[in-house]
Design a protein around this nucleic acid. Structure first.
Lengths: 427, 427
DNA sequence: CTGTTAGCGCTTTCAT
DNA sequence: ATGAAAGCGCTAACAG
């Protein structure tokens, strides 16, 4: 019923091979012949059979993009950027490449399943975005799977995810540790000493990294401990650049024009009143990225700082619940750091519902700098991640249009955006 | 290099046919044989060749999802919902179906191109989300393309998009007209008479529909003109149900428990000072969904109401620019309706930058009720669209797991969410 | 520059 | 319940 290449060949009075050559355009064909073929294609309304083409050529036009949750702009922005780069001529028969977006919900099993499915499709490339479950088993399984994909000729790029040992998958990782640290150091510099932290789901790389940054900040670890000067003023879009000890390949957009270099000055912290982390009751059900959620952990903030940490999903509800819980644990806290902007918004809502003003009573900080964050009232202090740029770069690398970073790993930095939601604590 | 079905067959000492049958599981195979085959698959780390399978079986596991902008949660939410429904066993060899998300950027050409690409892949189904360019040419081209896809066995479902005449594609359309009207009637009922409207890009279905609703509201057209009672109170999540004259299949989530039936009462509008629509200068460049943007149109609000309409892209910047422009045209306006929530947020920012308070000085309303809208300060009055439910339904229909609505067309209603951003005008 | 000839790896009658 | 064999529609050597 549907026209085939042979039909076109017959109508154009050429061989199937010639039609194929015209369509793929990678082979010299006489202009007049090409004309004839193209006309036949038109007349027959012929559309190439993708599977047949892929089978014969042993390659496909499909590019897989793994995301935890496509409804979350964090992933949507990256996926869109990847997609914009894989697009354009280059696929078979002059066609474009198609993005297969796989929603894993953060589940390790689904990640693996989708990878198999993409392998089955003989995907040209696969881009894995965002964090993942942080366990040796999953890492091992992932490693094996990615190795197999690579063997089969599929290019693998990680975007916003830690490198996978044992593979040569290119990794564009976000420097979450540094970002988390900048945020907390910013708050410490403002004078905050009782800082709550609404973390993401336990057992995930992003959660762990950001939390580690927070703790490093609290502990005033190393020469990088900072004190802000002018950049502390809120309301603007102040930029922050870490000191030189932060290694890693910097992403081009990491440092704004108003960058402020900071010095290593240790903080005297509030006398400790150690508090173990608690989980947010409820609120994490069914949320994408909600994994585990029952793991309590001890604060690593050292004896001089008070640590208040709760875990929850990467969603608004968890932010709300987490803030409520933290307020219960320490009604005197003066600042809240959230796992990301969405969580921060939820936390803001909880604070308001408790009659607390932001930032007069409690400062709030997020992470990611999603588009809506600047429109929060007050605008959210956060760490801007160059999601779009990173996604685009991942896409180009996946297409072989850009050389991978040296060593196959690039650490992409975020930029501290100091805005209205953080200020010095009262009195 | 990669193992093939034949390799598995050899190792399991059966014929390729048997391996195929085991893998696809739609055929009786002796338990012991199956065991043997499965073990061979394991041992060889065999992964089915998708293209070969699709070629032989003449079907694929791919489902296309067309979106204007995957980075926009409006589309992300729908795409995610579609994806969650097409997932699960049912594809070839027990594998799942894969979602091919195509970012059209709102471009008609790209819509058509992607449809061809999906046809080439012999996609099992295609779901087209959101509005599109509203021209006879594009509709005609679309119609032809969809017809051809349907002929080739691809199921086509429209989600949040008007039906395409000449096709039997199932359409789940949003009742944007009604939503737009509810919003404007809500403002009129509050006492507003000088209402600005920041519309989407000219020439798009969604823009046209929402604007038509706005104008219908202004004109107090027909028996459906409304006056709100208790539901007007802001701050809550009041629900609104239109009068019975609204035909169309109602979506289950369209009407909340607190629905208020309204009566046909005409509004006396402010003496007219007709103002033609103007375009937002700049700000629409490169934005997804930005199409045209240079088309001026006359107000259709009738002689008794003052119409202030500007067009722009569906993004924050357009909202900002649009509000600035409207304020310039009429510094005395008391309310602003935006094309969607994102645009509304931009408008809010502009108002604040002009020293205007929301809602005391100017009321603002959006459309869609995206997740962040409730966290705006004040929370945004808007029309909630059941994006997730609609997407899920579209997915099920595309999979043949749910019967299409009678006539192949269902009108999905939005729900008016009255919140803090709208109030009675001053004095 | 164009035609011929083999497959690519799998599914599916049709036998047995 | 299993095997044999004939393609599915296209590409890619290899001739010419």
């Amino acid at each position: 019923m549907t026209a085939t290449l042979a039909d076109v060949a017959a109508r154009a009075k050429v061989s199937p091979a010639t039609v194929s050559r015209v369509l793929n355009g990678n082979y010299p064909v006489a202009a007049t012949t090409r004309e004839r073929v193209l006309r036949a294609v038109e007349e027959l309304d012929y559309v190439l059979n993708g599977p047949a083409s892929a089978l014969a050529a042993a390659t496909s036009d499909l590019v897989g993009i793994l995301v935890n949750d496509i409804a979350d702009p964090f992933f949507g922005i990256m996926a869109g950027a990847v997609q914009s780069e894989i697009t354009g001529p280059g696929g078979r028969a002059g066609g474009e490449r198609l993005a297969v977006v796989c929603n894993t919900g953060g589940s390790p099993e689904r990640e693996l399943t989708y990878l198999t499915l993409l392998q089955r499709q003989r995907a040209a490339a696969v881009v894995l975005t965002g964090g993942t479950v942080d366990s040796p088993e999953h890492t091992e399984a992932m490693s094996a799977k990615l190795r197999r994909l690579a063997e089969a000729g599929t290019r693998v790029v990680l975007c916003g995810r830690p490198p996978v040992p044992g593979t040569d998958a290119v990794a564009l990782t976000f420097d979450n540790v540094r970002g988390g640290r900048m945020l907390t150091e910013h708050l410490l510099a403002l004078g905050h000493r009782r800082i709550g932290y609404v973390a993401g789901p336990a057992g995930r790389t992003t959660t762990r990294e950001r939390l580690a940054g927070h703790r490093a900040g609290l502990a005033g670890i190393g020469p990088g401990a900072v004190q802000h000067g002018d950049a502390v003023a809120h309301g603007g879009g102040g930029a922050y650049a870490g000191a030189a000890e932060y290694e890693g390949t910097a992403n081009g957009s990491g440092v704004g024009p108003g960058a402020v270099h900071v010095l290593g000055i240790a903080h005297s912290a509030h006398p400790a009143q150690p508090v173990g982390a608690v989980d947010v009751p409820g609120g994490t059900g069914g949320a994408p990225g909600a994994v585990g959620g029952g793991v309590a952990e001890r604060s690593g903030g050292g004896p001089e700082v008070e640590a208040l940490v709760v875990h929850g999903a990467y969603d608004r509800q968890s932010g709300y619940d987490g803030a409520v819980e933290l307020l219960r644990r320490d009604p005197g806290l003066t600042a809240l750091v959230a796992a990301n902007d969405t969580v921060a918004l939820g936390a803001c809502a909880a604070l308001r519902d408790h009659g607390l003003r932001i930032p007069q009573d409690v400062s709030v900080a997020g992470f990611d700098d999603l588009p809506f964050s600047v429109d929060a009232v007050p605008a959210l202090t956060t760490v801007r991640l160059p999601l779009s740029e990173a996604g685009a770069r991942a896409g180009r690398i996946a297409m072989g249009r850009e050389a991978p970073p040296p060593g196959g790993i690039a650490k992409v930095r975020g930029e501290l955006m100091v805005r209205g939601s953080t200020a010095a604590p009262r009195q």
